[in-house]
């Protein structure tokens, strides 16, 4: 169990460190919202999911994309704005998608994909599929109206969805306590009728255990509706970009220090035998090198791509007529 978790964690951490390293060269033509420090949430929650299960994410979704098995080459090429990127250079780092891996996209507008995930889960239930949907969002999203509306509908229709609130304490630079009269996100979920659990301290092993139980309960039918987790975590880097933001004064390095000392990458590394760990690390480093080279060597999209994909072209009048 520790080895796959470590691989997932280490891969996310190292990809993002590499992104931060390359960023100043201006080769990455995309705003980057790094999840360094928060990797444990995505790694733990996605671990029990199968490839065909579905996740929806946020603009800070590199970790979700990678933890769910998203293609690294396509991700980096996308951030370079290349035609081989996962959206052909049209979405950028905030709209990563990999349908084959069950990554159904992410939104730059906070809270937006919560409802999309619920709609996907409605389809799953209607079609009597075994798929499980997982919706990732931040603490800020819990203040959007769509959060309350979506939870209500998911409970009403008993949908196979797990909500994961990745609570890093800040919406850009504003702390949760400056935004919420009652900073109790689980309480809001319970009010909507959801079983909700708060997991403190970015604790990857607890998150993994609870996520596994929730996924199994949906698979086995012992749970007949959605579940909710609020996972406390911490963003080490600035809101957007590769640097730190402690100099802005809205938070202190001393606040961050316990989270940095409680680094889940190091914690899980210590649980993996040295030989296996070295193999994992070597494999990830090779994959990253290959992916960076792929992104750098890929071509920018052809200019004709500017006007394609506005509409799904199969729905030309001729095609509709044929269907008739």
């Amino acid at each position: 169990m520790y080895e796959p978790l470590y691989k997932s964690l280490y891969r996310i951490r190292r990809v993002e460190e590499e992104v931060a390293r390359i960023y100043p060269t201006d080769k990455l033509k995309s705003p980057v919202h790094l999840s360094i420090g928060q990797e444990a949430v995505a790694a733990a929650m996605c671990a029990p999911l199968d490839r065909h299960d579905i996740v929806f994410g946020t603009y800070r979704s590199h970790a979700t994309y990678l933890a769910k098995g998203g293609d690294l080459k396509a991700m980096l090429a996308e951030m370079y704005g290349k035609g081989t990127g996962c959206t052909k250079g049209k979405g950028g780092s905030m709209h990563l998608i990999d349908i084959d891996a069950g990554v159904m996209g992410a939104s730059a507008v906070v809270g937006t994909t919560i409802a999309n995930a619920v709609g996907y889960a409605y389809s799953v239930k209607l079609k009597k599929q075994s798929t499980i949907v997982m919706s990732f969002f931040g603490d800020g999203a819990s203040e959007e109206g769509v959060f309350a509306e979506s939870l209500n509908f998911a409970v009403l229709k008993k949908l196979p969805i797990i909500f994961v609130c990745e609570n890093n304490g800040y919406a850009i630079h504003t702390h949760q306590t400056k935004r919420q009269g009652l900073p109790d996100i689980c309480g809001r979920a319970r009010a909507a009728g959801l079983p909700a659990e708060l997991i403190e301290d970015n604790d990857i092993l607890t998150m993994h255990e609870r996520a596994t139980a929730a996924v199994n309960a949906l698979r086995e039918g012992t749970a007949t509706g959605p579940a909710f987790f609020e996972c406390k975590t911490y963003r080490w880097k600035e809101h957007v970009g590769p640097g730190e933001d402690f100099k802005l004064g809205f938070r202190s390095k001393s606040e961050a220090q316990p989270w940095i000392e409680n680094d889940q990458v190091k914690r899980v590394a210590a649980l993996v035998p040295a030989v296996a760990r070295k193999q994992i690390e070597a494999a990830v480093e090779a994959e990253i090198q290959e992916a960076v080279a792929f992104a750098e060597n890929s071509e920018f999209p052809d200019l004709s791509e500017l006007t394609t994909d506005v509409f799904h072209t199969v729905s030309t009048p001729a095609a509709i007529q044929k269907a008739a």
Partner: peptide, 25 residues
């Protein structure tokens, strides 16, 4: 299941419609 009235939640229900469409409905 195929025909239903909704909660008074235009925002989320539009998002639900999109999610259902992404899933093939």
């Amino acid at each position: 299941e195929r025909v239903f009235g909704t909660p008074l939640s235009e925002d989320a229900m539009t998002g639900v419609a999109i999610g259902a469409a992404l899933a093939g409905l």
